[in-house]
Deep mutational scan, measured.
Amino acid sequence: HNLTITQGKLFFHYNPKLCLSEIHKMEEVSGTKGRQERNDIALKTNGDQASCENELLKFSYIRTSFDKILLRWEPYWPPDFRDLLGFMLFYKEAPYQNVTEFDGQDACGSNSWTVVDIDPPLRSNDPKSQNHPGWLMRGLKPWTQYAIFVKTLVTFSDERRTYGAKSDIIYVQTDATNPSVPLDPISVSNSSSQIILKWKPPSDPNGNITHYLVFWERQAEDSELFELDYCLKGLKLPSRTWSPPFESEDSQKHNQSEYEDSAGECCSCPKTDSQILKELEESSFRKTFEDYLHNVVFVPRKTSSGTGAEDPRPSRKRRSLGDVGNVTVAVPTVAAFPNTSSTSVPTSPEEHRPFEKVVNKESLVISGLRHFTGYRIELQACNQDTPEERCSVAAYVSARTMPEAKADDIVGPVTHEIFENNVVHLMWQEPKEPNGLIVLYEVSYRRYGDEELHLCVSRKHFALERGCRLRGLSPGNYSVRIRATSLAGNGSWTEPTYFYVTDYLDVPSNIA
């Protein structure tokens, strides 16, 4: 807008934040220059609390790290170098490059900038070799853009010569660093050979998330399962459950009422301010606690030095998902009996873990797994792929695949051998790939016309006998059925096997 004052003059007093240069501009645009008398524009009460600059400061050096910015700028000295009290560095987070010096300023003089007072450097006698002032900004957020400017702080001049310097606002972004852990990993099994893994992005990506790394490792069953005799009275049979499938998407929606109208769909109840505040506090606490764990609990591995020492970490090797089922080394339970199943799973520490690289999504279907087997899954978020990966501390989750139908069934015939004193040795093959492992066998036998009897055969007993022995049988026709019990439950009964026990007292003698 054009402003013209045809008559009258300007009068400025007691404006401590208004620089004289701005008042002189007002004289020019209003056409009143030359009308004012000496005392109409006070030299001592206008701009006496402001830094009124008329020179431009330029930054000469900028260096960044993930949490620091090192700045240096060209030296500046007023005509009387004693008038320079120091520099004021202003900075704040700036997602967009549209910041002005006066953003967030209120009537009390406060604003949204963080201000650092910096002492002037030592003055050199040689004007050509003056030290460049600077400042190291610490405690910054990774991968965050900051708006920065600097200006001088000078003393009051009796001659009211307006001098000083100020830089333009520059924008500097800190470097990326390792992201925080992925949030809320959930693993479920939808079949006997697959596990579905879902997660949420890290709360602090500290860069642009480029991919996720998912490692999985087959877990050995508890050692007590191999040692305890679950045929003993009072000892509860062990059981394991597989990871249940995901709930429906509708039930997972946030901010939804727990109660549904019987007449149909209901609208979600909005969260109160107290609920939102509580969630923010919980989120802040979780982030602080995660940072504490990362800094205190997890110790970084030592990389190899120039002395030739090897990095103890196993090298990563990509495998196809079809090879995942046989990740671990199978060892027989008892070496003397080769027909026992290889369900003991000690994992070799030198073995390469299978892994998958996930790009542009937060889910993965891990296939080719062994049925009813526990897996430990390790999830890392990465925001750099080359020249070397920059990934987060791992988040861990466990899951067990679903049982395989008929995996616990005894394959092959049940054979028998009759000894003296009416002892019958029953023999059968253990299931080759049971659900988890076989903890015991149930032997059901009966003599024709009598009630059915049951015998429990422990895992250890089966390994020693290759089956079991029935003792003290009365003469007669017998039928026997056997079924295995694994961590997933009972298998199917075998087809009945028949044998006849004679009275050993009636056996004919070869003595003449």
Rank of each mutant, 00 (worst) to 15 (best):
H425F: 15
G449Q: 13
T288P: 10
I276S: 08
K406G: 13
S367L: 12
R286G: 02
E451L: 07
N208C: 09
I482E: 00
P434L: 01
Y259Q: 11
E452L: 09
R481D: 00
F355A: 12
E495K: 11
Y445Q: 02
S363P: 08
I377H: 02
G476W: 00
N490G: 15
P349K: 14
V324Y: 03
R313W: 14
G368C: 04
S315R: 09
E290P: 05
V414M: 04
G234L: 08
V296T: 08
F298W: 03
L277V: 07
V358Q: 15
D291L: 11
G436T: 09
P238A: 07
P431R: 01
T303L: 05
S203T: 11
P434V: 10
W493A: 00
Y500E: 02
F499G: 00
L470V: 13
T210H: 13
N206P: 02
E281D: 09
P245R: 11
F246G: 10
S243I: 08
Y259H: 09
T373P: 00
F215R: 12
T502Q: 05
T340H: 03
W216Q: 08
R471M: 07
F289E: 07
F372E: 04
E249Q: 15
R301I: 15
K271G: 07
P300Q: 12
R316T: 12
A395M: 08
H461R: 10
E433I: 14
T333N: 10
D503L: 04
N295L: 04
S283F: 14
T401S: 06
A512V: 05
H294R: 14
S444R: 04
P475R: 07
S344W: 12
S342H: 15
F499P: 01
E362R: 11
T340M: 14
G306A: 05
E452V: 06
S223D: 14
E417R: 08
E350V: 12
V507M: 13
Q275C: 08
P205S: 09
G322Q: 06
A381R: 01
E417L: 10
Y375Q: 02
S320V: 10
G412V: 07
V297G: 11
S305F: 13
L473P: 02
S257V: 06
S262P: 13
S284C: 01
D503V: 13
F355M: 12
D250R: 09
G234E: 15
V397P: 09
C231Y: 04
V359H: 12
E265V: 08
V501Y: 08
S344P: 07
W242F: 07
V457Y: 07
V359D: 01
S284H: 06
E404I: 04
S251R: 10
N326R: 08
I366W: 01
V423G: 15
S479C: 03
G368Q: 08
L473S: 01
L225T: 11
P496Q: 03
E465H: 11
V480W: 05
Y504G: 09
A463S: 09
G412N: 15
D503M: 05
S223H: 11
N477E: 04
S479W: 07
K460Q: 09
R400N: 05
P338D: 05
S257G: 08
D385F: 08
Q219P: 09
E442P: 01
V345C: 09
I209E: 09
V397M: 12
T415W: 03
T288W: 10
A484M: 05
P205C: 05
V457I: 08
E279D: 13
F372I: 02
P387I: 15
V329T: 03
A484V: 07
G489L: 05
N422A: 15
K287T: 11
F499C: 03
N339P: 09
R313Y: 09
T373A: 05
Q429M: 15
T373S: 10
K361C: 09
G449V: 00
G322P: 12
S392Y: 01
F372K: 02
N255T: 12
D450Y: 14
A463H: 08
E350G: 14
N339G: 08
A220M: 05
T502L: 12
L280V: 13
K271Y: 07
F499Q: 01
L470K: 01
G374I: 12
T241N: 10
K236A: 13
S444Q: 13
A309G: 11
T288C: 09
K357H: 03
K432G: 01
